[in-house]
Computed example of a mutant assay.
Amino acid sequence: MESLIDLLQWPAMLVTLIAAWLVGSRHRVRRCAGFLCFILSNVLWVIWGWHSQAWALIVLQLGLFAMNLRGTRKNAAPPGNAR
Rank of each mutant, 00 (worst) to 15 (best):
G71T: 11
S25R: 03
L69K: 09
W48Y: 15
M1Q: 03
C32H: 10
N42P: 10
A56C: 11
W48M: 06
L22R: 13
A76S: 15
W21F: 15
W48C: 08
A56G: 11
I58A: 08
L60D: 03
P79Q: 05
N81T: 11
W10G: 00
L7V: 02
A77I: 02
C37D: 07
N68I: 01
L62D: 00
R26Y: 14
A19G: 09
N42Q: 11
R30K: 14
R28V: 14
S25C: 06
L64F: 07
L7E: 04
T72E: 08
L57R: 09
S52K: 14
Q53W: 08
Q9F: 04
S41T: 06
L22D: 09
A33Q: 13
V43K: 04
V15W: 05
G24A: 04
R73V: 13
R83E: 06
A20N: 13
I18E: 09
A33L: 10
W10H: 05
V59P: 05
K74H: 07
V29A: 03
V23C: 06
L14S: 03
A20T: 11
A33V: 07
M67T: 06
G80A: 05
N75F: 15
N75Q: 15
A56P: 12
A76D: 12
N42S: 13
Q61T: 07
A66Y: 02
P78C: 00
S3M: 05
A54C: 11
T72M: 14
A76E: 09
M13L: 12
N81A: 15
V23E: 04
V15S: 07
W55C: 09
L14F: 04
Q53L: 12
F35G: 00
V59S: 11
W48V: 10
R31F: 11
R31I: 13
M67R: 02
L36P: 06
R28A: 15
A19F: 06
H27K: 08
V46H: 11
S52W: 12
Q53K: 14
A54F: 13
L62E: 00
G24S: 09
I47K: 03
G80L: 04
V29N: 01
L4K: 00
S41I: 00
G80W: 04
S41L: 01
E2M: 08
F38G: 14
L4D: 00
P78D: 11
S25G: 06
L60H: 05
L60V: 07
N75H: 15
I18S: 10
G49M: 03
L22I: 09
S25D: 04
G34D: 00
H27S: 08
L64D: 04
S41K: 07
G34I: 07
N42D: 12
L7S: 04
N42T: 08
A19S: 14
N75C: 12
I5E: 01
L17I: 13
A66P: 02
R83W: 11
W21L: 08
R83G: 08
L22N: 12
L36A: 13
K74R: 11
F35P: 01
W55V: 11
A77Y: 05
L8H: 01
I47A: 10
M67K: 02
R31Q: 14
I18Q: 11
V23K: 06
A56H: 08
D6H: 13
L14Q: 04
W50C: 02
F35M: 08
P78Q: 12
N68C: 05
Q53S: 13
I39N: 15
R31A: 14
L14W: 02
L17V: 13
A77P: 03
R30M: 07
A33I: 10
A54L: 15
A54R: 09
A19L: 04
